[in-house]
Structures are given as C-alpha cells and as structure tokens.
Design a protein around this nucleic acid. Structure first.
Length: 803
RNA sequence: GCGGACAUGGCGGAACUGGCAGACGCGCCAGACUCAAAAUCUGGUUAUGGUGACAUAGUGUGGGUUCGAUUCCCACUGUCCGCACCA
C-alpha cells in the first residue's frame, strides 16, 4: 500500500497510459457530444492561470460526458494570424511563421500540463495554407453571391496599427487592440454584407442557450428600429430631403431639420450667403475624430439658408447642418422635434429655434418646457391627430403617411457592413485579381490557396497600402478571365476570418476536397457547448454566426447556428488587474503544477469562485485543495479493504453525494461541486470513523465522481481498488432517489418567525403530532401569551404567531 | 446620459421554487506530536453581553409586502460591465 500521495509519479504514469490508450475513442454506437474551447492565439507570453480556467471547465464537461457513455469531440487549435507575431517580426526581422511556430510549440507544451482529452490529430492552425485555402474559398463564395464587395468610404483608421478597423473593433472610437483613438480615412476596402443577415442574426438569438447578457449585446449591436421615412420638399428647389424617424407621431412638432456635414446635396442646398461658413464647418467636422465628435457635448451647427416644407401642415422649417447627425445611419438627415427629443431640444435652445409641444402628459396643462418630454401622452397641436394617444399615433403614422404618398414605413439597423480588408502582412491574402478589363475577378477555386508570399519588409505603411504591394513579381499576374495583365489584391483578411469557421474544420481537418465532409459535419456539428471569454460577444461570436448562416444558404452545412450552448467564463485577475506581461502580474501555471500537481491546480481553478464571474487569483487557496486530495488519498487507503454493510446513513449520504455533485456539475456551478466534494468527504470520514469501516460501493462512487475533475488521482485510486481498466470505463454513478427519503426529518420551530429550536420527527408524522411536539419545545417561549396562528410547512418549519 | 448585473464574517464564497444565514475553503487562535520548526491531527473562529447554557443585533442604506425576506417590491448609495448623439 502506498501511504503517500505522490502526485508527480501518479500524473506522469497516467499521462503515459492515456497516450497509449486514450479514454475517449470514437465509437458510432455511442451518442456524440461536441465540446469546444475558443482556440487561443499562441502568444509569446504563454498561458497563465486564467487560460486554464476555461480549458479545465470544458475538459471536466468532456470527461463527464465520456463517463456518461458519449463519444466526445474536444479539439484544440491555433488562431495564429494577427498583429503580435507581425510586430515581433518587424522588431526582430524574424518571419512571423517562425515566431508563431515557436509560440505554438511552447503553448502546446503548457496545454499538455492540463491533461485535457484533446485529440491532437484534429489540431487546426489558421496560418496553415491547407487551412486558409478554405478561408479563401469561403470568401470566393461570398464574392460570387455579391456579399463581398469593394467600396471607397471614410473608415476607422488606427494610426498605431496602421490599419483599418471594423466597427466592432472600434467601439467608443478607440482601437480594440491597442486603445489608440481611431481617426477616419477615406480608402477603398473590401466589405462583407453582414447587414443582409441582420434580421436572421437577430431573430435566431432566441434559439440559443446563451447568457442573456451576450444575446442582449448582440441584439443591441444589430440595433433594429421601426419607424418611417418622411419626405420634405425644399422651398424654391426641386430637391427633396428624406428623413428617417422612429417618432412619426411627433411630425407636427418638427420645427427645423438637420443634415449631416457629409450630406450629398449639401452644396446645392446652401445659399451663397452661408456658403463660406458651411465649407469651414464641414471641413472641421471631417478632420475631427469620432471621439471628438462625441465628447464635444456642446452642439454646433450652421444654417444652410434653405427651408424645408413640413408635409403635414405645409410649414416652412429651416434646414441646418450639424455633426450630431450621422452620415451613415438612416438617410443622413433628420427632422427635429425639440419638444420631444433631448438632442433637438439642446440644439433649438442654442440657436434659438422654435419649440412646439405636440404631446401632453396625461392630466397636465400645456406650459413652456424646461426640458424635452420623451414620454407618452395625448397628441395636441397636430390637426386631425389631436386627442390620440401618442403610442397609438406612433403605430398609425407610418401607414397614414404611406397612404398619402408622404413617406413610408421603414426599418433601420445600427449594424454596418463588415470592413474586411487589412493593410498588414500576416493574414490570409484576399483571393482576388484586379483586371483593367474585367474588374475584380475571383481566383479560380482550383488555384487556391493564394499563398502568402515572402516579403523583405513586414512594415505597414502610412498610406493604407499593404506590405504585399511591394512584391511586384507576386502582385503582377494575369487575369483568370481574359488572360491579360492584371494585379493581385494586396490587402489581407482580418484576424476574425479564420476563426469564423474553424469549429467546422475540426470535424474533418485533413479533408483536401472540401471544407469538411457532409458526413463528418452531420456527425459532430454544431457545437454542443462552447466555452470562452465574454470579450468576443459582438466580434467573433457575431461573425461566426454570420458565416454559419451563409454556409447554410449555399448548402455546405445543414444548421443555421454554430454554438447551441455558450458559457462565458470570468476573467482571472491578479491584484484586481487583468494579467499582462507589461503590468508584470502574470501567474504562470507551470510552477503551481510543479509544486502541487495538475489535479490540485485543476480543482483549484474551479474552486476560486463562480466560473462565470471574475475572480482574483490567490495562490494560498490551492493549499486547501491539495490538503483535500491528500485526505482523499488517505481515506481510500484506510478503508478500501474494510467492507461494511450499508447503513441507512451511509446509503443516504452516498446517494445524496451523487445527486448533488451531478446536478451541480451539469449546472456548471463548479465551485460548489468542489465544496460538495469536501463536504461529503468530511461526512463519509465521520461515518467511517463511527462505524469503523466503509464499503467499496461508496469509495468507488467517490472516485468516479472525482474522475472528471482530478483524473490522475482517480485512475490511481481506481487501480488501488483492484481494477485493471480505466476509471473512465466505469460509467457515471447513478443516484437511487428512493434512498434520499429518510425516516426522520428535522423541523425548525419558530416563535414569531424567530428560530427557537429543532425537533426530530418521523417523516410521515401527521400535522397534529408535529405541532404538539413543537409546542412542547417552544413552551417556555410561548408561556403567558396566546397563540394567534400556527403555520406548518411540511418537512420544513413550524411557526407560532403569539401575542 | 441610457441599459444591465452585483453588494453576505478578516478573505474567497454557500444558501434549490420566500422557511434554521455564514456550508466549504483560506487566514487566524488554542491544544496534541516535536529538543525545536515544518508537515500532520484535534478544537475554536459574525458582532455585542455573560464563566455558562443563553440573550440581543446582523446579508450596502432607508422603507414596504409577509406568520416569516440574503431571496419579492420601491427609493437611495456604491462597484463592475455594455452602448455612446443610431433621430
């Protein structure tokens, strides 16, 4: 008998065993389960204890499913294109491929320390030409369907990364990667028409078992709104200004209009008198960053000199220009109802424009407004609409306008098309050839992949041109369509391209005929459980949903959503800060594994706190888990050869343990699973001491329950119990619920809601009997007072209300 | 500014549909073992009062509903997150 828990020896031994004989073999007689982690970027810093958290959780689930008799797909790979490797390459003049390969090797070594059941035959790497061939293939399909198109427009430009950014990468007007304030730059770029999927991306959210928070973030990002487009004729002009409004019910209250500085007809609408001021204002607006446009709270603007005509009452309304109106939302022009919109109110006050109230809060009198009133009420000052409820008027107005030819019902989205090209080296080349005769032509599918060429300098330029543009022998090619001289597209794809579909490749990663075979996809996809951080809520997770829907439309996959269930694990911080090399607070798992072992660290990762919340790392807590595993070791060693008949108490405790651990594991409340293990081990130890023994069925149940969490020690103890096969063939213990009913129960006795003691009674005792006993117990507290009411909640509580 | 989440001992955190608050762990205190220390084991550990059984208060603050509230409702304070002039 081994008296000491020698984790080093045990863990090395079982890692070798599993390598020889994996516990998770494919077997189509079994049901299947696809459990996926968001694949890592192989950074030079390597993994820290925060990465472990998600990987351990998904591995616990995977191993649990194996024990439940499933065949499990639990793969791992590398999201390896991207800026850090490229920046490293620029600094040290080492090809990003080499730096990436080094990092992959190191992170892979660290991943082995987790002892997850990854199937490394299924490894994918987004920078592998055999992989990005299919990333390019998907782009070509989108191009053929008109979903990938070129457009020149002002775009988010990060002056530090020297690269354009998608809207999703520039929230708050700041670069998502480096925090630099984003400016605007007018560039020709490739776009993906994700807006064509806006409605489906919104509607299908309801099919998903995802955290509400993520669903809300996506639906807010898509930003669907219902309203109307209304046409305003311009006085003494043939121009018409169409505005978009979600409040057509307030149309009678429109007292002026505002155009964005980029509005297309602006020059024609500006009278000579205001021309100079207008040009100055528009020039200034164009040089402001989007952050300045927002943070400069004070409203600014210039009058055009023109007037629009309110289509309902024929009133003349002055037309102004202001940068608070966005060029790329709605029509770039708005009608202003200062009485009922805060921004319009502010503008009207600043420039002394009229304010007319058209909604009166119910039960009040019309009086001068101190601020915009945006609530519901009764329509006034609005011709034949007077007396209606604003809410009803809002519903009715679009149809009303449409019938009279004054406007139409409209739906708008905040979601914009996805800016898909980047002016950087380390990414997938966009498989397009520009021909002076044929225009943009897709590279024929049989010529894919378009390989990323060697280049002398990886340095990005300030001009918005990719480093690839310098390689003339690569750039100059012939047109696949007419054979004439042509030039290759020199931009590359954003990092999100490879990660938007990688979960499909795992199911059939060696396939060189198609992205993945129908059979393999049918077998494994979509993903049953997806585990990763919340930071991708509107980036990767939105893009992957879009790709999946597109691939569904062209018949590649047979499902419309990639991830059935999503779990967002919280971040692990150190001293309250996100772990980073520059802050110097990175806690590496390597040393902890060395000192405590993989099993202890796995269990402690789950014990630090609720897995969906952020937790601050504290090394000292791992001692508790380590002590626990030592206790389990001794406990099993002490009692494995002493067979005791089941007592009622033991039977109950064992079944309750199985019941609690299983439920908590399936709810993914892993911190309570760990505390549950400690609690039940304490209880069983007490029983064993009292009875002077235990039994096999109880010890084995404990060992199997532990197996997904601490697989090495579980295998070793399983062997100590005399088994020759793996603990993962044992099957998940089943709780006999009939044993959860006990003969006696404890009932708390309260007087006026305050607990005064406990009574232990027979489980099938009648109400009268319970109350009689409770009364006896509480006699001294009731004495001298009268019982007004007796409350009896069977199995829980008796409460006497006394006066 | 708008929207959302959260608030429990010295610390991390438990508490299923309203029913014995503080499980479990860390830390701390005391004891055992030891020449000594570490490790290990045993006991204690919300606060106040009492030698004591016990009593009283107590889940951010103030109110409400209820026989009974950490849990439900209202207001406030604080922390975190998302969006950021989307008409």
């Amino acid at each position: 008998m081994k008296s000491r828990y020698d984790f080093k020896e045990i863990e090395a031994k079982w890692r070798m065993q599993w390598e020889k004989n994996p516990i998770n073999k494919e077997d189509d007689k079994k049901p299947r389960f696809y459990c996926l982690d968001m694949f890592p970027y192989p950074s030079g810093t390597g993994l820290h204890v925060g990465h472990w958290r998600g990987y351990v959780l998904s591995d616990v689930v995977s191993r649990h499913m194996v024990l439940k008799g499933y065949q499990v797909l639990h793969p791992m790979g590398w999201d390896a294109f991207g800026l850090p490797a490229e920046n490293f390459a620029i600094k040290h003049n080492i090809h990003p491929r080499i730096a990436t390969a080094d990092n992959v090797a190191n992170v892979k070594r660290q991943l082995h320390e987790i002892s997850a059941i990854y199937d490394w035959d299924r490894e994918v790497n987004t920078t592998d030409p055999e992989y990005y061939k299919w990333t390019q293939w998907i782009f070509v399909q989108m191009f053929k369907k008109g979903l990938a198109y070129e457009k020149e427009m002002p775009l988010n430009w990060c002056p530090s990364c020297k690269c354009v950014l998608a809207n999703e990468e520039a929230t708050n007007g700041v670069c998502e990667r480096c925090g630099t304030v984003v400016t605007k730059k007018n560039l020709r770029q490739w776009m993906l028409k994700i807006t064509a999927y806006a409605d489906r991306l919104l509607e299908d959210l309801q099919l998903l078992d995802w955290p509400d928070k993520v669903k809300k973030m996506q639906s807010d990002w898509i930003g669907k709104s219902y309203g109307a487009e209304v046409e305003f004729k311009v006085k003494d002009s043939d121009k018409v200004i169409t505005v978009y409004t979600t409040r057509p019910d307030t149309l009678y209250g429109a007292t002026f209009m505002v155009l964005s500085p980029e509005y297309k007809d602006l020059a024609a609408l500006t009278t000579p008198e205001y021309k100079e001021a207008m040009e100055k204002y528009c020039f200034e607006a164009s040089t402001k960053s989007s952050v300045d446009r927002v943070t400069n709270k004070e409203k600014t603007g210039v009058f055009t000199g023109s007037y629009g005509i309110n289509p309902l009452n024929g009133e003349l309304v002055p037309i102004w220009v202001s940068d608070y109106v966005l060029a790329d939302y709605g029509t770039g022009a708005i009608m202003c109802v200062p009485a009922h919109d805060e921004r319009d109110f502010e503008f009207a006050k600043k420039f002394n424009l009229p304010i007319r109230q058209v909604i009166l809060p119910e039960g009040t009198e019309e009086k001068e407004l101190e601020e915009a009133y945006t609530g519901d009420g009764i329509i006034i000052n609005s011709g034949e609409w007077n007396g209606m409820k604003a809410f009803d008027a809002k519903q009715m107005a679009p149809d009303y306008l449409e019938k009279r030819g004054l406007g139409k019902k409209t739906i708008n989205y905040k979601l914009r098309d996805w800016v898909f090209s980047r002016q950087r080296y380390w990414g997938e080349p966009i498989p397009i050839v520009h021909c002076p005769h044929c225009g943009a032509v897709a590279v024929p599918e049989e010529q894919l992949p378009v390989m990323l060429p060697e280049v002398e300098s990886y340095k990005p330029t300030d001009t918005g041109e990719s480093p690839l543009a310098q390689i003339h022998e690569w750039v100059n090619t012939s047109c696949p369509q007419c054979g004439g001289p042509a030039k290759r597209e020199t931009n590359t794809m954003p990092q999100w391209a490879g990660s938007s579909w990688y979960f499909l490749r795992y199911v059939d990663n060696h396939n060189d005929k198609e992205l993945a075979s129908k059979e393999a996809l049918r077998k494994w996809a979509p993903v049953d459980l997806y585990v990763g951080g919340i930071e991708h809520a509107v980036l990767h997770l939105l893009y992957a949903r879009f790709y999946t829907k597109f691939l569904y439309d062209i018949g590649v996959v047979e499902f419309t959503e990639p991830f059935k269930r999503l779990f967002n694990q919280g971040m692990i911080t150190k001293n309250g800060a996100k772990m980073s090399k520059s802050v110097g607070n990175v806690v590496s798992p390597d040393e902890l594994v060395e000192n405590y072992g993989c099993d202890s660290l796995r269990m402690y990762e789950l014990f630090v706190g609720p897995p969906e919340l952020d937790s601050d790392w504290d090394d000292s807590g791992i001692d508790g888990v380590f002590r626990f595993l030592n206790k389990v070791w001794k406990f099993v060693m002490n009692y494995k050869d002493i067979e005791l008949a089941d007592t009622k108490e033991l039977e109950y405790t064992r079944n309750k343990m199985i019941y609690d651990i299983t439920n908590r594991l399936e709810a993914l409340t892993m911190n309570t699973v760990v505390s549950g293990f400690m609690e039940y081990t304490n209880k069983l130890t007490e029983i064993a001491k009292k009875e002077n023994g235990l039994n096999r069925v109880t010890l084995e149940a404990l060992i199997v329950l532990l197996a997904p969490f601490t697989p090495h020690i579980a295998e070793e103890l399983w062997q100590e119990m005399g088994h020759t096969d793996s603990v993962f063939t044992a099957g998940w213990p089943v709780c006999d619920e009939s044993k959860l009913k006990t003969d006696t129960i404890d009932i708390a006795v309260q007087v006026n809601g305050r607990v005064r003691g406990n009574i232990t009674i027979s489980a099938d005792a009648q109400k009268e009997e319970v109350i009689a006993q409770a009364k006896e117990l509480a006699a001294s507290k009731i004495e001298g007072q009268t019982i007004v009411k007796e409350i009896y909640v069977p199995g829980r509580i008796v409460n006497f209300v006394v006066k």
